[in-house]
């Protein structure tokens, strides 16, 4: 039920966002490629939101020791990792026409790449642990440290170097489109998160049934 509502909301929002991004929003001097901005920024925002959920769910797991929180953390981390991958890719596609290269070691690119690597490690380590409780404990520790590391990475790299476009006074239509895009991707995040969670619960049920039958 919840999933159906989320699916409906995201579909409608997605159509509205597409209209606003490609038709409603004015074109800037850098041309059509600038419109990737409406995908890039929301993806980055939602990736941070997803990792924040991982952080909170990890703390909750270590506190309450309920495996449900581990399912929350890992589902959110998966969606966050996909979104981080996408925003790195969209950033790269945008950088090529804008700066002439696919990648530069600019502050935000570097910190995003490190963020991405931290959560890749999160999943690699999960795959190395077979015992459920231990896996949950270890990934909670990584989920907490990883998230605490994010601001540290960002601060350092900003001290180190920066070349990202500053957001200056924006056309109200641009702001509106950006807001709608962010809302769309937030709805999409919750949809994917809920789907992944439901899948985990089914997996769990299946495993319990298997164990029961084997007995």
């Amino acid at each position: 039920m919840k999933i159906k509502i989320l699916l409906g909301v995201s579909t409608v929002l997605m159509l509205v966002a597409l209209y606003m991004v490609f038709i409603f929003a004015p074109e800037t001097e850098s041309g059509v490629v600038q419109r990737i901005f409406y995908f890039h920024i929301p993806l980055a925002w939602i990736a941070f939101l997803a990792f924040f959920v991982v952080f909170v769910a990890s703390i909750m797991y270590l506190w309450k020791r309920d495996i449900k929180w581990d399912a929350f953390a890992s589902s959110s981390a998966e969606v966050g990792l996909v979104f981080t991958t996408l925003f790195l890719l969209t950033g790269s596609i945008w950088a090529k026409p804008e700066w002439g290269v696919w990648w530069t070691w600019d502050s935000r690119l570097t910190s995003s790449l490190i963020l991405w690597l931290i959560y890749i490690a999160y999943f690699i380590i999960r795959s190395y642990i077979s015992e459920e409780g231990q896996r949950a404990r270890f990934s909670s520790v990584i989920g907490i440290i990883g998230f605490i590391d994010v601001p540290i990475v960002v601060i350092t790299i900003f001290l180190w170097r920066t070349a990202h476009p500053r957001i200056e006074a924006m056309d109200p239509r641009v702001t509106a489109t950006l807001m709608v895009s962010i809302a769309t991707f937030t709805a999409l995040y919750f949809l994917l998160f809920a789907l992944r969670l439901a899948m985990k619960q089914d997996e769990d049920k299946l495993n319990r049934l298997k164990a029961f039958l084997r007995r």
Partner: peptide, 12 residues
């Protein structure tokens, strides 16, 4: 496991 966890976290 240690290097893949350690390097990104100590990057700063």
């Amino acid at each position: 496991v240690l290097p893949i966890l350690f390097f990104p976290i100590v990057a700063p």
